[in-house]
Design a protein around this nucleic acid. Structure first.
Lengths: 121, 121
DNA sequence: TCCGTACTTTGCCACAGAGCTATATAGCTG
DNA sequence: CAGCTATATAGCTCTGTGGCAAAGTACGGA
């Protein structure tokens, strides 16, 4: 998943699918061609990566492959990223309030080693 | 940013910083050693990547480098990922409501704009 | 002043993966 | 059936990056 999203070509494809709901392999390939100058087989390979990561699903329509975004993995990604900062900003927020109410004069290093002060509302 | 988060070692470091608020290079290095069996210079390289991506900042405390998470980039990542699915689920949600009631009485975000996909190819 | 500690930097190797061309597969269409 | 369209796969090259050991830098303490 993280790997799937690491490439700008694939992100561009994801964004396109997010905007248009769905697109054929050809449309996505042409988009990639315009924006990144890559050839069709390369685009196809990127689609394979997205498929195997579960970010997109494809259905067959005659010779066409219609791709569609799968929200699960992207929501997981969003959740993970948000979680990393929520802990932190929660702490900082609590700390800031604490500093504001008590004293606005402490070092920038808050000594997390000995005491756990996370439960302060 | 996306690159910074693409590596499991680096994600592990981020998670550690998210939990503990901050950590020295040595602590992060040892964590990576335990979990991934990598050596200290390799861990240092990963920290460099995180630093240059703006995901972490470091301050000097004698010989120690204290690392701390920078919420901005991670929030951006979370925002991007969430945005990709919000379009989509919004559309799907609207469609579901439409199928459910068909009267289209809910005039909130239930505006599918113009018929976007009639003239495909 | 010299040593040990804590990291970073450097130089190297190996492998993953992104790009290409050429080819295969599948399904319409004439 | 031939041939065109749409997409995937195969096979190859080349760059990027993760890994290591060894050397460099910076600082505190005996």
């Amino acid at each position: 998943m993280f790997q799937a999203v690491a490439d700008p070509v694939r992100r561009s494809m994801i964004e396109r699918l997010a905007d248009h709901g769905e697109a054929t392999a050809g449309e996505l390939s042409e988009l990639a061609a315009q924006r990144f100058g890559i050839r069709q087989p390369t685009a196809s390979k990127h689609l394979k990566v997205l498929r195997e990561a579960g970010v997109v699903t494809s259905s067959v329509d005659a010779q066409r492959r219609v791709y569609r975004l799968e929200p699960g993995p992207l929501d997981d990604l969003a959740g993970w990223a948000a979680r990393q900062t929520r802990f932190w900003t929660g702490r900082l927020d609590a700390l800031e309030r604490h500093l504001d109410a008590e004293t606005a004069e402490t070092a920038e290093i808050t000594d997390p080693a000995t005491t756990d002060e996370g439960t302060s509302s």
